[in-house]
Nucleic acid binder design. Sequence first.
DNA 1: CGTACTGTTGATCAAAGTCAATTGAGGTGG
DNA 2: CCACCTCAATTGACTTTGATCAACAGTACG
Lengths: 280, 280
Amino acid sequence: MQISPQGAPNIRQETVTEDVSSTAFIRKLENHLRFTSSERDALQRLTQLNVRNVRSRVTFIEASAPASEISIILSGWACRYKMMPDGRRIIVAFHIPGDVCDFHALLTTAADTATEAMVNAKVSSISRQALGNLTALHPRAGQALWWESLVSASIQREWLVNATRRNASERVAHLLCELHVRQAAIADGAEEALCMPLTQADLGNACGMTTEHTNRTLRDLQKADLIVLDKRVIAIKDPDALVELSGFDPAYLHMQTQKVASARSPGAIAIDKCLNTAEV
Amino acid sequence: MQISPQGAPNIRQETVTEDVSSTAFIRKLENHLRFTSSERDALQRLTQLNVRNVRSRVTFIEASAPASEISIILSGWACRYKMMPDGRRIIVAFHIPGDVCDFHALLTTAADTATEAMVNAKVSSISRQALGNLTALHPRAGQALWWESLVSASIQREWLVNATRRNASERVAHLLCELHVRQAAIADGAEEALCMPLTQADLGNACGMTTEHTNRTLRDLQKADLIVLDKRVIAIKDPDALVELSGFDPAYLHMQTQKVASARSPGAIAIDKCLNTAEV
DNA sequence: CGTACTGTTGATCAAAGTCAATTGAGGTGG
DNA sequence: CCACCTCAATTGACTTTGATCAACAGTACG
């Protein structure tokens, strides 16, 4: 599972110096407050200090690793997972560009989750030290980070509801709605941002379902004309119907209302492996 | 569900001035760092500024309420829940003395969960304003609070795993283990602290199970000699076997190791309604 | 052109939900 | 002190959702 992809077994990640964008990250934080330009600059600089490329399906944050830094997804997708004693893997979160994927690293105790890139990704790391300097100088930035961690927790709660109280179709539909909205909130018009690199296995795992049943459920949703399956792409055909079916209410995402609204705009979204062949 | 108990339909809560203890709260925060006595004093004072009694089964934090303060349980138990559109209630967290039960109040957006007292409880409220003053004066106290919110999130993740990947017996056993350890960590020898006021319905709800199946599962655990059911009391008979059965690993609670160890000590714990008749 | 995922399909089965009563304890009021 | 009420716990019969097991097909990539 955490096997390096073919071709570069030894080079699991490499530091990059080229230009990368941390706008998604700052945009997400600005859900909670508006930064001054100096605050924004400080965040921008901090997120570009230490950026690395991570190859698809590589676990770049180990559960047992002594954590001394937090990581932010700059591009690509990642999933956070827990391992069961019997080796089963449970996805507890998806992380898209702009997401901080290991707030728990701020705790002094050992991490209980690992994080894997789902496609080739760019990840920025900020040391606890650097973070301390930032919050000392820009307390509001620290506060925004805390808030962001609270939003993560809120999403986690909704996932519990999703997996325990909704049936298979509702679960999948709800997760698609969530990803749709989160995705739209960080998109800046670029179609790349609207690409969701999810396998059916990942999708099902996150919903607490087997791959087989996920597949059948997706077929049902297609039969009902809510989505379209084509090769390895899942396209949302009827967003409103998905919202209706799953009882999706974006309040738990704690976004500014206009960002939520923008996700309601028509237009299909593809969930596929398009990013797998992206540059790295 | 959120009906006031018989006898005092109009007096849902009252402010108390008598002496209350915030040691559990401070003890929990000291899982992460050791406070100076001035920090401890500040926290102590802050948690005693605004204390109220909440009657059993009263929702004291509404989901829609404009949140301007966070609440800390001083005594008694509470549960955080979400409502489904169809009126079903889903418990997403249990809160015991020392727990902050609504970190999300720090967000400027609307809350997505409500909190109900499961027995008569004492709750301290700290305004966002007062909290700001505290963290400005004592940054380490603010940091400890952030950490505490990260621990909450970690517990939330484990609940997702619990509800989706373990069978009924394992789920119940795992939750009993968690509550056992959390309870032991704040207990200071008083037997009152070792009393868990949980109905079978609550227990099942938190595990994503029906009341009926929870009841049958508890019978099974009793048949296997892991617990003892007596009237409305669930007593843990074999803690080690419960840990073994459920695959419980306390790492996700992010506690100091000696606190976890103390919970391994023998001695049955009662889960009953003993606190329902407590003073209020 | 083989190797390895990812996706697809079918048959079977079991865990847990649903529906429907009933019991028992504790508190209330007369 | 007793009839009564309510809530929590129990129990049984039946149903259903989704897991399990077992192949197999399509794609991608070296």
